[in-house]
Structures are given as C-alpha cells and as structure tokens.
Amino acid sequence: MKALRGYLLTGPAFALFAGLLILPLGLTLVLSFNVFDYNTGVDADAYTLDHYAEVFGDSYFYEVFFRTLWISALTTLLCVLIGVPEAYILSRMKAPWRSVFLILILTPLLISVVVRAFGWSLLLGADGLVNQAIQALGGNPVKLLYTPFAVVIALVHVMLPFMVIPVWTSLQRLDPLAEQAALSLGASQATVMRKVVLPQILPGVLSGSLIVFGLAASSFAIPGLLGGRRLKMVATLIYDQYLAELNWPLGATVAVLLLVLNLVVMLTWNRIIERRYKKALG
C-alpha cells in the first residue's frame, strides 16, 4: 500500500528519466559500436570495435585526453589554493560582511558561463586590460587568449564557488570553541590551523575537489570560447565529431569514455572520502 503510493508519486519523474536519461545513454553506448562510413553515415545494424581502436590507437586522442587531465588537475589545485583560504577568511568575517562577500563570490555561479567566458576574452585579449597593464608596467604584450592559461584562469573563475561552498559548509560545522581550546592549551595560531582546523575541513576540500575536477574535465563552453580552434579538450573534441565531422559513432565513443572516466573518478574518490572520514566525522 505504502509502496504503491511511493511508485505513484515517483512515477512521472521515473518515466521521464527512463525515457530521457537511461534510454538515450543506452542508445549512445550502442551507437559507439555502430559502423560508420563518411559516405553512407551510421549503419545501425553493423557493429564494430573500430572506434574504440581508433581512440586508443591515435596519439591525437591521447593528447586531448592528457591535456584535459592536466588542465582539470591544475584548475582543481588552484581552486584549493584560492578557495580554502578564502572560505576560511569569509568564515572569520563579521556578520553583515560575511554574507555580503559570500554572495558576491558565489553569485557568478548563476550567471551564464558564456557571459563569463566572454568577459575573460575581453580581459585576456591582445589589447585587453591585462595586456594593457603589462605594457604600462614596461613589459611586452603576451599572447594569453587561446592558450591553456586562459582556459585555466576562466575555469578557476567558474569552479571556485564549487570549492568555496563545501569548505564553507564544513567550516560552519566547526566548533569555534575547539580553536579557542587549542589556543588556551598553548598551541600557536599556525598549529591550530594545521592540527585543528585543516583536518576537520579536509572532507569539504576533498568533495569540493571532486566536483571541480569533474566539471572541469567535461567543461565545454570555456575551452570552446577561450581555447580557440587548436586547443581542444575532450568536450570540444566530441562537439567537433558530432557537429563538424558528423562522425557520430566516434563522438559517441569519446563521450562514453568521458562519462565512464568521470563516473569512475567520482565514485572512487567518493569511496575514499567516505572510508576515511565517515567514522571520524559522522
């Protein structure tokens, strides 16, 4: 009786997710094994492992995957280095300023990523403000736009809120008296930071890193607009296969690999966090 009501209430959502999430993902998996010919297109009845062989055999794909990996890793690292201290500073602010700045730092989250990418292209362009500043200081103009540098900077901008949020949340759970207790027991401010604060916010940092890495690795609009034509990441590569090359099966293969890698990284990471911290922090 209760079970029936449960299925009735979740039914509409389940129908939608079955039809528009599970089914298309399944179709894409099938598509990645379909034979493709540039003249005749997709042959839905013939199956092959050629696309996987091509992806695993071609150094171009390795290059793109590797680039995506290091750009995402660097973005994650920078988000940790900027986001963690920033969240800590925010948590130590006084009442009105704290929420004002928290909202200031988090709201870009809600502004279209296209707008933010465009903003960075204005700043980092050949005659953008950054280059003007470099020249005013006596330096030579530098090519910033369409380099990995531009992509990383913009990705950090887009991802920083995703790091600040979980760290902020774990800082909120921290008992401020524990810090004072440590100080009263003779610990220095640096020791308090290292021995009391950091261990407690580490789960927040780790889950933030997970989100940032996952989103960065599959980011599309930022590398699309700031990476230019040559600097491909996995997402822009898939886009090209689908909408420029029209080789859907190959695109599907890369998409399946991206999804699998993403899920594997997320689930392992999650498991590690849970195993290490569930006991200590509930």
Partner: peptide, 28 residues
C-alpha cells in the same frame, strides 16, 4: 515512504548533476 528501490530512484533523479551535460546533449 519506505519502498523498495527508493534509494535507487533518489540517486537516479539526482544523477544529472554528475553526468556531463555534453554527454546528455549528444545522447538526447
């Protein structure tokens, strides 16, 4: 309500957050 499959449904409905939009895009 407690019913079999509840946790699965919950995870399913939240999953678009961790599935790259690009993958969803090509799938649809």
């Amino acid at each position: 309500l407690h019913f079999p499959g509840r946790d699965f449904l919950n995870a399913l409905f939240l999953s678009p957050i961790i599935i790259p939009h690009l993958v969803l895009g090509v799938a649809m």
